[in-house]
Write a protein that binds this DNA or RNA. Sequence first.
RNA 1: GGAGCCGUGGUGUAGCGGUCUAACACACCUGCCUGUCACGCAGGAGAUCGCGGGUUCGAUUCCCGUCGGCUCCGCCA
Length: 607
Amino acid sequence: MQGEHVTAQVRETGEIPLSRSASWQRTVWCGDLRAEHAGQQVVLNGWVAHRRDHGGLIFVDLRDRSGIVQVVFDPQIDAEAFRVAESLRAEYVVAVTGLVRRRAPGMANPKLATGEIEVEGHKLEVLSKAKTPPFPLDRPLQVDENLRLRYRYLDLRRPEMQAGLILRHRLAQRARQYLNARGFLEIETPMLTRSTPEGARDFLVPSRLNPGTFYALPQSPQLFKQLLVMGGLERYYQIVRCFRDEDLRADRQPEFTQIDIEMSFPTREDVLQLAEGLMAELLDEAGIEVKRPFPRLSYKEAMLRYGSDKPDLRFGLEIQDVSDLFEQSSVQVFARAVATGGVVRALVLPGGKELSRRELDELVELAPRWGVPGLIWIIVEESGLRSPVVKYMSEGEQIALRERLRAKTGDLICMMAGAEGKVAPAMGRLRLHLAEKRNLIPASRWEFLWVLDFPLLEWNEEERRLQAVHHPFTSPVEEDLELLESEPLKVRANAYDMVLNGVELGGGSIRNHRRDVQERLFALLGIGPEEAQEKFGFLLEALEYGAPPHGGIAFGFDRVVMLLAGKETIRDVIAFPKTQSGTDPLTGAPAAVDPRQLAELHIICHG
RNA sequence: GGAGCCGUGGUGUAGCGGUCUAACACACCUGCCUGUCACGCAGGAGAUCGCGGGUUCGAUUCCCGUCGGCUCCGCCA
C-alpha cells in the first residue's frame, strides 16, 4: 500500500514527501499530522466530516482512516479553493493541497490528536460528491441496526467501527506471529466438505456434477485438522471461517471465525499452556495484562459454585449446597427435594435487604422461566430471619443456615430446591440476574478460567440417546475408559473450555487416536459399524496408519475481538454481519435464484 | 418453535382515545457571519404515525393479525 509507505516515511523521518505520481494523491494521512510537521506542504485525501462556514472563512474537518485534521479555507489565501470549499457537503471525497501550520495560541483543540495544527488549504479538488447520509456518522450511534446494515459502507466509515476492525486485524496478526514462532503452520482446509451426523445443522451446497448429492460447509475444520496431524504436519493452525445453520444471537452468526489449532504428541497441559500464552499475547495487543496461570475449575465445581459451565468470575455471589441441613426439615419443598435425591442450594446477596417486596416477588416469578418451580427468599434481620417460609424452619435450621452461608444482617438469601440438573443452572441464572440488577459486574476486569473434566457424554432426552458433550472425537480420560459401556455418563472427557468474563472463548480436547476407542464411542452415540464406516470410514482408516496422539483447541475469534473492543455483539466487529433472521439487508441475501440455476443443480423447490 | 421489547419527517425521540392541522433535537435547504471545531444567528422545506383488519361517533393512541429489527429460551457436537 502506498499509504503505508507514506506513513512509514513520515514516522521515521518526520519528512512528508512532496508529491505522489498524481498531483491529487495523498502525501500524508490526516491523523498523522503533528506540530513537528508545521511548515511542510501536504496533499490530503479523505472525506468531509464537517464543514463550518463562517462566511469569510471555512473550516473543514477532513477524515481518513487514520483520523481527522482541520483544514482552513481563506479567500485571501486562495480564492478558488475557498469557492470550491463553499460547495462542500458532508461525505464529499476530496483532495486538499496545503500547508501545515501551528494553530495560534489558544486555538488548539485538545479533543483532536491533530489539534495542535491545522492545514491551510491552497487547492481543493472534489473527487466524489455524496448524497446526505441516511444517518449521522459523527456521534455516538443510536440508529436502527437494519439501517446500519443496509448502508454498511457508511456505518463502516465511523471511527468506532474502524477501530473494531483495526483491532481485529492486529489481533489476527498477533495470533499468527505467536503461532508461527512456535512451529505452527497455517494450512487451509476445504470449504466444500461432507455433511456428518452430530453437531449443528449444516449449510448444504448442491453438487451440479453429482445429481442429488450435497457438500456441506464446515462447522469447523475438526476432521481435517486431525487428518493434517495424522499427515505428519505436526502443528497446524488456521484463522478460518466456520458455518452453522442455527438460530442467531448477539454472540452467534451463521458464519464466524475460529482460531483453530491442532498439534501432535501434546499433553493436555501443553495445549492449555499454549492457549494461555496465545490469549495473554492477544490481550497484550489490546493493552491488557493478564494473570497466569488461569484458574481451573472442574465442570462439576463450576456447576455447583456458579451454576454454569462458563462462569463469570468478575463478581462473587457464589452458590452453596445446603441440602444436608434440610434432610429432616418441615419445609416440605426442601425435605422432599433431598428425599428424592435432589439438592437445596443457596446464595447470599450482601445488602439484599434493600430489595422491595415487589422486587422479591419478581424474583419468585422469574424462577419458572429459569426452569424451577420456585424460589425462596430470606432476609437476615437483626432480630432473626424474615421470610414466608421461616415459620416452618426450626430454630436449629435457621442458625445452621446462617452459619453455613456466613450471612450477615441486611443480607438476602435466595434458595432453590429440586433435581440438581434443574437447580444448578437456575441458580446460575439467578446469580447473573442479581449481579446485573445490582451492578456488581466490574467492566474493566478480565477474569479467565479453564473448565476441565467435562463429562464425555450426556443424555439427550428428546432423541432418547447419548450424545457427545464436546464432539465425538474427544477422548475419554484414561482411568474412566473401563466405565465407557457400563456407566457412560460418568466418563470424563479429555476436554477443556476457556472462559473469559462469562463468555465461552474456546474449547478443545485431546482426541482419540486409537481406532478401537473411537469405534466404541461411535457405538455409544448410536452410530453403528455400518454408518460409522460409511460416514467416518476415512477417519477410522487413518487411525490405522500410524496416527500420533494429538489434540488442540479452537477459539471464537469474533468473541475475542468483541470483548477486547468493548462491544456487546460480534456484529460490531464483523464487517458484513447478518441480522437475527440470517439476512443481509445490504445485498438482500438470501434471495431466490433463477429456475435455470435450480434445474442445473437438479433441485426442485416446494412452497 | 416460543417469550419479551421496539417500529411516528432523513436520524433519534415525545405524544398513548378528540385543539394532532402531530411536538422537540439533530440533519437538510436558503440567507447572514473571519477562528470555529457537535460553530452561531434568521428563515424554510420535510411525516398518508411499518402494513392489514377490528373496536369506537372518532385510532398515531385500544385489540387482533402480519412484516421488520433487537434481546432471550429452545437450538448451537
